[in-house]
Amino acid sequence: MAEMRTLHVFRGDQSGGEEVAYEVPVESGMVVLDAVHQIQATQAPDLAVRWNCKAARCGSCSAEVNGHPRLMCKTRLDAIEGEIHVRPMKAFPVIRDLVTDVSWNYEKAKQIEPFAPKEPAPFTMYQRDVERSQQFRKCIECFLCQDVCHVLREHSAKEQYFGPRFMIKIAELEMHPMDGADRVPFTSHQAGVGMCNITKCCQEVCPEHIHLTDDAIIPLKERVADREWDPIRALFRKPAVR
């Protein structure tokens, strides 16, 4: 007889809700998303959950498992001791059950100046020049980094800070060897890189193991410091010709 585990799954919407307990038979190698599908198939057909690839590639099934932001498809049941609580991402408004409204992220994405090539494509680029940007392109937009970021999650400072996802987006463009736009003032002011206090939670939860803080946010802070906090560099800087 299969082992049974209890999943406490949030059921509700913007007006409120509560966790409902479901008993699920466990199979070898089962992940939380499998268990949620099992519940959907046998006990609660109206349970709302966003998913797509079931292979940690699409970034759709982000949720909080026992309070930790995770991809449900990448979280094995046998890695969790005791009760299993599954809730929607806290940083975003709930639509229903485990589905959240992440449209705020797309609004922020629109505000970032897109790639502005210095010369018409095709161009020659060397690996050493593009490898930093390549790391950031691994992002699957699961928004777990946005969810765990305490600036957005606990302080609701969505007007002051774009969040780690868009810091790596800016870094990706800003460090691109053929990009001619200057996003440093934007990074400092509108995107609010100064709101980040580099506690690296975004880096800890990233399922793609992107070094968001060390390779994107801190280098961006250093670029802002070049402009705004380093009079010695300012003295020797050539006038920018874009």
């Binding site: 190698g29 992940v31 991809l71 990448k74």
Partner: peptide, 11 residues
Amino acid sequence: MAQPAGVLAPA
């Protein structure tokens, strides 16, 4: 059962 690529979980 689905086993995502690159899953980081204990045995």
